[in-house]
Design a protein around this nucleic acid. Sequence first.
RNA 1: GCUCGCGUGGUGUAGUCCGGCCCAUCAUGGCGGGUUUUCAUCCCGUUUACCCGGGUUCGAAUCCCGGCGCGAGCACCA
Length: 501
Amino acid sequence: MENEAPEALEKRVKERREGLPELPNAKKGEVVLRFAPNPNGPLTLGHSRGVIINSEYANIYSGKIILRFDDTDTKIKRPDLKAYDWIQDDFKWLAGRKPDTVIEASARMDEYLRFAEKFISEGHMYVCTCSGEDFKQFRIDKQDCPCRNNDSTENVEKWIKMNDSDGGYSEGEAVVRVCTNMEHKNPALRDWPALRIQTTPHPKVGEKYRVWPLLDFQSAVEDYLQGVTHIIRGKDLMDSTRKQQLLYEMTGWTYPETLYWGRVKVHEFGGFSTSQMKNDIEEGKYSDWDDPRLPTAKAMRRRGISADAMKRFWVELSLTEKDISIPLATLQSHNAKVIDKDSPRLSFIQEPVKLTLTKEDVKIPEILEIPRHPLHEEFGFRKWQLEVEKEFEVYIEKDDYEFAMSNNGLLRLKDFADVQIYSSQNGKITSLTKSDGRAIIHWLAAGMEHPFALNKPDKNGEWGVVNGLLENNDYPLGQILQLERIGFARLESSEMIWTHS
RNA sequence: GCUCGCGUGGUGUAGUCCGGCCCAUCAUGGCGGGUUUUCAUCCCGUUUACCCGGGUUCGAAUCCCGGCGCGAGCACCA
């Protein structure tokens, strides 16, 4: 058998793959990856995929992950000074660590301009002074623009004029193009633009530079300079890869291995446009970037989604080029598994109804001890001081009260006692032990509560405040709680933010 | 218009390169049940899929051809 068909033995056995697929041509310890957002806002849910997938691969291959701020547009997607910090913060939360290197493209301008000048003098790029509209036509017609045939000396002169704020070209009058091929079958690759003039000051470096690289050029040069081995990007940038490969071919550089993912939408949010969110916040539709209704990393964190759940979520979606639309429930399901085991239980009474109960012959304890977590007694106990002398008052939810009224008034107060309730909002404690299969509800003893609010979405997804009574506690702000029979929520100073059930 | 990519259940995903081990994996959701003094966690059961049409082949989710659908690029945005 081995002698007759050796190739049959070499064929890989079909196995179920788990986690991320292998990176092509990756050597442990030598992988360099990068995540390159535009700092025009904090990270969105979409960006979180980039942080997680790239940093996961860096972990798997003991490689490096670079965080690069692609901030070379001063006009359309202006960098937001605050975003540089936000993104580093979001990155650290998602990846569980800081990036190995942080680069700001705007701080690397000298390098980009140096390479631009080199490529122009070598004839790989040229200065084009045609209008955008004219060039568009040349591209459609597969015709060279008049500037294409200028010799490199002339191009260097024009390059100097581009950089000259005094008497040179002004914004829109000249761009630098990569000399590819005007008959390339893919129109997107025909002499693509590499640098242009921008006179809007940059928030970081002001008016120090006049000619700025476009993404394709900046990214191509920086990836080379940093020794990036693998690029993982959206498939909308496939043509970007091809443009950059053409430049790499001219310069003799080796292009990184490139992988892509498709577009992701979340049912509840649709897409994740940073500029759209920015507008909406400015118009007052949302309070800020961490408004729980927004698909930002900040908002997810505020809603009590754990970084671990985000990681599981993105790793499960893996690296496919398919455009997908996924319900938030998938992320929430991962999250529930992660947070359930260490979320302390607490009672929260929505729309409370106060009941006065008689104790009859039942002897109630002065202190009721309820575990903070049903599966982890080592977390300790909640200790409720009960009123043994005077009237005994409790709060239950209006819905539970109404349910009891239409079902003979029998209820069990969880972890405490069986009660019989009357429509007068009075009742009696009938026994401490559970005597039958009656419904068990959560409740609060009077004196153990304080008014508090829960900010949560209704059935239609509209967020609103539910007022109620929260069990007294000393958990720190940011603690994720499980409100018994309701769901998870994260504690803030003036309210709780709903996580999910 | 030109160019590129993708099409497996309600939603994702494995398998597609190298055809048989796939009457198609795992998860999530739905439904039903169990455990639980929470409608949480956990456990069990159940449900539904290879875009369409040809071809090659003993055999096709997988290879070939042709459709159709969806998405993206063709920006002096990233």
